[in-house]
Amino acid sequence: MATADDFKLIRDIHSTGGRRQVFGSREQKPFEDLVDLGWLKRSSVDSRATHYQITERGTSAAL
């Protein structure tokens, strides 16, 4: 179930172009929650960072 923080984060991601790069596993937790909701997808993972991209469902949630 989505929380107020989830909606705040997806709106922030949407307003800044729909993509986010995250460093460190602790910082990934809120983004992984949005992946579980179907609002974000992991577009790539490298040794230092994970890249996320907003989905259509995420765009709808952000509006």
Rank of each mutant, 00 (worst) to 15 (best):
D33S: 13
K8H: 09
A49G: 15
W39Q: 00
T59I: 15
S43T: 15
G58I: 00
L9F: 03
H14Q: 09
T50A: 11
D33E: 08
L37H: 05
S44W: 15
Y52C: 01
Q21K: 14
G58Y: 01
K8L: 10
S47N: 12
D5Q: 12
L40T: 02
Q53R: 08
R57F: 10
G18Q: 02
E32T: 07
L9K: 03
R42M: 08
K8R: 13
D6C: 07
R57E: 14
F23G: 08
L37M: 06
D36L: 15
W39N: 00
H14I: 06
D6N: 14
R42F: 05
D5M: 11
G18R: 02
R48S: 14
D36E: 14
G24M: 07
V35G: 02
H14D: 03
A62K: 01
R20A: 12
S25K: 14
S15C: 08
R26A: 15
T16R: 09
V35I: 07
D5S: 12
R20I: 13
S44N: 11
R20Y: 07
H14A: 09
R20Q: 05
V35A: 04
H14V: 07
S43I: 15
V35D: 01
A2T: 05
L40P: 01
F7Y: 14
R26W: 13
G24V: 07
S25A: 13
V22M: 04
A2M: 05
D6R: 07
H14P: 00
E27R: 11
E27V: 07
V22H: 03
I10R: 00
A4V: 12
L34H: 01
R26L: 14
F31L: 06
P30H: 07
D6P: 05
T55C: 02
L34I: 02
E27T: 07
I10N: 02
E56A: 12
L63M: 11
W39Y: 03
R20K: 08
E56K: 10
F31I: 03
D46S: 12
D6F: 06
D12I: 08
K29G: 09
Y52E: 01
I10L: 05
Q28S: 08
S15H: 11
S43W: 12
K29A: 08
G18C: 03
R42V: 15
W39L: 02
S25R: 09
V35T: 04
G17D: 06
T3I: 04
G17R: 04
T16W: 06
Q21H: 10
D46K: 05
T16H: 10
R19P: 03
R19D: 07
D36Y: 13
R19T: 14
A2C: 07
A61V: 10
D12M: 08
I13C: 01
S47C: 07
T55L: 03
I13K: 00
K41I: 15
A4K: 10
G38T: 03
G17K: 05
L9E: 02
L34C: 04
S44M: 13
S25L: 08
S15G: 09
E32N: 09
A62V: 05
I13D: 00
L40G: 00
K29I: 07
S60K: 14
M1F: 13
T3L: 05
I10W: 00
S43L: 15
H14S: 06
K41R: 13
G17Y: 04
E27C: 13
T50E: 04
P30Q: 08
K41T: 15
S15P: 01
T55I: 02
R57L: 15
S25W: 12
R42K: 14
Y52P: 00
M1P: 11
G24H: 12
F7Q: 04
Y52F: 04
V35Q: 02
D33I: 15
A49R: 08
R57I: 12
G58N: 00
W39A: 00
K8C: 07
H51E: 15
V22A: 07
Q21A: 13
D12L: 11
V35R: 03
V35S: 02
T3E: 04
R26Q: 15
L63W: 05
A62W: 02
E27F: 12
Q28R: 11
Q21V: 15
K8D: 09
T55H: 01
K41H: 12
R26G: 12
T59W: 06
L63N: 07
A2P: 14
Y52S: 01
S60M: 14
L37A: 03
T16C: 08
H51Q: 11
S60L: 15
G38I: 02
D36F: 13
A62S: 04
E56Q: 10
T3M: 05
S44H: 15
Y52R: 00
